[in-house]
Write a protein that binds this DNA or RNA. Structure first.
Lengths: 248, 248
DNA sequence: ATGACGATTATGTATATACATATTGGAACG
DNA sequence: CGTTCCAATATGTATATACATAATCGTCAT
């Protein structure tokens, strides 16, 4: 409300006008009232409809355009776009949080840790061009008494030398790295795999049982930081991704 | 540019000032120069640094805040946030596009189609409360001669009655639905599973071989539209998700 | 008919200004 | 010494205005 005349004295939640315009239009689009291709009112029309300045309307429309809901064309107006990219937001929680959300006690146990000069495979996984030291850590996440996930991690010690002095005995390297290294990019690969002998043994499942594998590579300012592979027994884990076209 | 004095006569790409401020600050954060917790300059300081009005600076900072890179506190200033939500953008392409990207000929073949009154399982999958007609379609996506994915789909005919008149013989229901129904929300579940007899037979793989299962539920304006399950043989498919903290 | 050109129009980006709001820090007071 | 309260301050949101830019439409001459 602030300094504009308060002639909209209705329900009057303290929502900014800008927010109201935004959600009004979004609602019209998502409900299908304004189908793809439909020309939405010109800025100056919305200006009179909402009794506000063009700047306010413009800000809302620009935001909708940036979110991909509408397309703006000079001299022609703004048009509803059809949702095209099948992109979903995938949340990859911290495993501890995930386990505790299930109401089970969480525990981490390190299996193996090794500092070594990077071999060709390490460099391929991390995306490194030159040789250098890496840290290899393998550990198990437990939910109660049952193994929940096996973690195999490679850390680029040229990027995070301090990690070389750590013993990841009871806390996983993930939480340690987050908060210490500002990461700028990550890539995930998700696939299905049959457990081999070693994995089946660690996770206490049958050999050849299906597993969900999530691999993540992380960069910080162009430099590879870590490559981690989480292996979940099929029964224990489902990834959930949700998507709403606009996240304004 | 425009009406401000053009004393920045350097390289002068036609990038708006607002964009420049935005990417400058983003760069400082992502490179680690400004670590999490760091207080970034006040708006009035940036105003003199970039020689522009507070509105311009404010717009850039608000955008960074909305993207989750910084946190703004009244009277205290703006601070670099530590990346916390492990959210990734997952692109789920159209299967045809995916196959053709591999350079293989794409083909779809319908296996089974059935119109029926929804049973309890159907309603659970679709998230329906009341009974009604549903359409069940099962089909196979081929890459060359090999089965690429098995599709099992349930369509809520109360939401999309026209689908009841379609025969999804050679085009999958997915592409047909998109463009016809404006969908407002979708949920994905990704998991690993061992193929049972029927699936192994359809996909021409060994029984008990691991598969990647992607399930998607779609809503249009609060109403469930469809539930689809894609089953990929483990070798044929990896989902890739990429994430950069800011998508300004 | 057709093509060039200028007027018109809608959006894009910036300005200066105004007032609201939340929070902090310190002064005044019990 | 602690508590209350006020002033200062940084951000939040809106205004009116100005000029730039791109695209379209109609006019006019060829």
């Amino acid at each position: 409300m602030s300094l504009i005349e308060t002639d909209d004295v209705d329900g009057a939640e303290s929502i900014s006008l800008h927010q109201r315009i935004l959600s009004d239009i979004r609602e019209k689009i998502l409900s299908g009232a304004w189908a793809p291709g439909h020309r939405i009112p010109f800025e100056h029309e919305l200006t009179t409809e909402y009794n506000c300045s063009r700047m306010t309307v413009n800000k809302a429309l620009s935001q909708l355009a940036k979110a991909g809901l509408i397309e703006r064309r000079r001299r022609s107006g703004s048009f509803v776009r059809r949702p095209q990219s099948q992109a979903a937001v995938l949340e990859l929680h911290d495993i501890r949080i995930e386990v505790e959300a299930l109401g089970l006690p969480y525990r981490y146990e390190r299996l193996e840790q090794l500092k070594r000069r990077s071999n060709a495979e390490d460099r391929a996984l991390l995306g490194l061009s030159a040789a250098g030291s890496v840290l290899w850590v393998e550990g198990l996440h437990f939910a109660g008494e049952r193994p929940f996930a096996l973690e195999q991690r490679l850390i680029n010690l040229s990027a995070v030398p301090e990690a070389g002095d750590e013993e990841f005995l009871e806390i996983a390297a993930g939480p340690w790295l987050i908060g210490r290294v500002p990461w700028s990019e990550a890539e995930h690969r998700i696939r299905s795999m049959a457990a081999d002998e070693a994995i089946a043994d660690a996770l206490d499942i049958d050999p050849r049982a299906p597993c969900l594998v999530v691999e993540r590579r992380t960069w910080s300012a162009e430099r590879p930081v870590t490559h981690v592979r989480f292996i979940y027994p099929a029964e224990s884990h489902t990834l959930v991704a949700r998507f709403t076209p606009s996240q304004g």
